[in-house]
Design a protein around this nucleic acid. Sequence first.
DNA 1: TTCCTTATGTGAGGTTTATCACAGACGGCA
DNA 2: TGCCGTCTGTGATAAACCTCACATAAGGAA
Lengths: 217, 217
Amino acid sequence: MIDSDTRSRVLQLYPMLQELPAAELALASLMLIPAGTVMFDEDQPCQGFPLLLSGSLRVIKSSANGRELQLYRVMPGESCILTSSCLLGDTRYQARGIVEESLEMVMLPATVFHSLLRTCDAFRRYVFQLFTERLTDMMELVTAVAFQKLDQRLAGLLAGKPSPLLATHQTIADELGSAREMISRLLKGFAEQGWVRLGREQITVTDLAALKKFATF
Amino acid sequence: MIDSDTRSRVLQLYPMLQELPAAELALASLMLIPAGTVMFDEDQPCQGFPLLLSGSLRVIKSSANGRELQLYRVMPGESCILTSSCLLGDTRYQARGIVEESLEMVMLPATVFHSLLRTCDAFRRYVFQLFTERLTDMMELVTAVAFQKLDQRLAGLLAGKPSPLLATHQTIADELGSAREMISRLLKGFAEQGWVRLGREQITVTDLAALKKFATF
DNA sequence: TTCCTTATGTGAGGTTTATCACAGACGGCA
DNA sequence: TGCCGTCTGTGATAAACCTCACATAAGGAA
């Protein structure tokens, strides 16, 4: 199902799959998934282990009153640890996965995932590594939400993204788990400090150092 | 270093270690650690994989202004996933571990941990399982902190603990990442609703159903 | 008992964030 | 050009939470 070009792209991003017999990888197929697609949602079972070739996936939790919070983002070369978690524990998703930029991905069937884990040391290390990183991310997120003020978190977000950042205030609010008006007001404040320059759907960082300093204070 | 009685207690709580050659386990030693001990702290490296035989460990994050938040609790039969994470990623602790009830534990050296992961399927599954559970916990914690009001979280905490609960309001505040006065006030409210009865360092749940309902609303 | 430490109760006041209700601004499109 | 949908700005208000400052209470130790 997979052509040799795709196969080599997969192996480039996921070198730990070298050991996987070509036949098994061939069983998978390349999928193209448009932005906005809900890949999975809470309480759904999970089918396989996704290998992202391009695009990105937002993993979020949403609250009863319509607000949402981004838990983490999955990029090419990574994989959704929540999926691994589901596969390993045979449980269900505890969050929602939404395609941010349209995806090219190959879905590794659950059976292949399990046999890889059993036989391939490199793959195992890769999965452990993913778990480790995500757990770290989540711990940082918890402390940020619990202890940091919104302005600090916003500054941190801006400092950690390429500038100029193309996004609406609502998008940013969703990432931080807040409300659009708050973001607008805070951004205005940052602009008055000379830290950013604002445009429609565009935020340009003009004083990265100040933002970083403010974020970690 | 370990007597056969201890060895059998370890194997009872950690059956996945059956395959471990007796010689390797014998290298470890039984440690007794009093309540209040700081087992590890942020930015410290980590030595081994702890096997808890009795007692409990609180894993917390603390903020600049003196508040703290409990991430999770480690009980006998479990292990501190943060430790695994450190061992696997060769990174440092990102939180603080404080002994709650005094510990009996056996420390598995890092080398043994790694060889077990490589060779023992049952142990691997155990570690993956731990990761999965903690990740789930952390995701729930994040959403709770981000979206739930303090009164709901407090109700949930009370509903999830044995009654009567012996703890000071400060202890509870630390677990929830809040302030003591808030807990006192909210508890008073719960008492007025007839959901709990309050005593010094003691909270007795009198209407579990109401608490649960309120927590999940 | 008396003293002392720790735990709890409580009011006042402030900060932070959310919510509501619009107004204005921008950009694409007919 | 004019229209329309989306994005942004802004004030008013309220909710939730925190902080400070004490007062009171409960239990243990001398």
